[in-house]
Amino acid sequence: MTIRTALVATAATLTLAPAAQADVNIYSYRQPELIQPVLDAFTEATDIQTNVAFLDKGMVERLKAEGARSPADIILTTDISRLAEAVAAGVTQPVESDVLATAIPDYLRDSGNHWFGVTTRARIVYASKDRVDPGEVTTYEDLADPKWQGRICTRSGTHSYTLALVAAMIHHHGEEATRDWLKGLKANLARKPQGNDRAQVKAIWSGECDISLGNTYYMGQMLEDEEQKAWAESVNVLFPVFEGAGTHVNISGVAMTKSAPNQDDALKFMEFLASEQAQEVYASVVYEYPVAPGTEPSELVASWGSFTADDVNLMELASLRGAALRLVEEVDFDG
């Protein structure tokens, strides 16, 4: 069966069809082409149609403005900060499901059952194949070592990806040690923080720096792009850990909206995302790691190496985001 996606639009032109015309209405921060395969699989398995609205920003504000009249049943988004924002804004509802509780590890779901992780991405080090021995990078703490002076590139310290890592450092070592770590990391930068994760890999390829921080899925995206493929092939993917813990991860997640008009079908969609079939389809398309027991990453993603995830609950990290931002600003990381 071919799925009918009624709308894929920006927030500026978005108008979802009435709920009666679609069984599950989805607001998504993920690009349409990335979620379409799993939507197709859901409809094939359940005969339930979906209606997708792609928003590049303002999802929580839109849900608050729509209130009880919102047609949205489901939020699909990336990064714990966005999920935490939605919960704090009161636009989600708790979901009781044995399927989700069994399939999604505790640290990748909200203790109040407002959101559930679907896939994970690791915050790793991209390292020059020519100038860095893979054994040189083992911990995040090591990035503050003077041996890396003038050799590190990274994006802004105020970006959500960076703040999540800094929050994890606070969780493991406290604010004072994290402040010192940030100062050391800043002292090792080859240039002022700028650009996205792929821009850092390009800088390694061009010789501006030797290592950078980035999310794993960008390797897959770069390999797909003819121009960026050379950048990707110039680096190794390395999985540092926190001392005494694991590799920092973030998530793609799902939540049910507070006003969901199609709750039963929305729950079926959430539970489908936790199935082995959906996990492997979705994770493969977005170059991320499935989280349900018995699932495996795609062959390409697996080729980058394995790691043990830091299992701190992501809501704990979300609660430390304010402290992380304060420390980043105190050390003038982007200055």
Rank of each mutant, 00 (worst) to 15 (best):
A9Q: 04
T10F: 06
A12D: 11
A19G: 12
A22Y: 01
V38Y: 07
L39F: 15
A45M: 10
L55P: 04
M59R: 00
G67I: 00
G67R: 00
R69W: 03
R69M: 00
S70A: 05
D73I: 01
I80S: 02
R109G: 02
G112S: 01
N113I: 00
R121V: 09
A122R: 05
V125A: 03
G135I: 13
E136K: 14
E141D: 14
E141R: 05
A144F: 00
D145M: 01
Q149L: 08
R151E: 15
R151V: 11
R155W: 08
G157H: 11
L163T: 07
R179I: 03
R179H: 03
G184C: 11
N188Q: 05
N188A: 03
A190V: 05
G195L: 01
I204D: 00
G207A: 07
C209V: 04
C209F: 00
D210F: 02
T216E: 10
Y218F: 10
E224W: 13
S234H: 13
G253Y: 08
N262I: 06
Q263E: 14
D264P: 12
D265P: 07
A266K: 03
S284C: 05
Y289T: 11
T295S: 14
E296D: 10
P297A: 08
P297Q: 08
T308R: 14
D311P: 04
D311R: 15
D311Y: 13
V312P: 12
N313P: 11
L320I: 05
A324H: 05
L327Q: 02
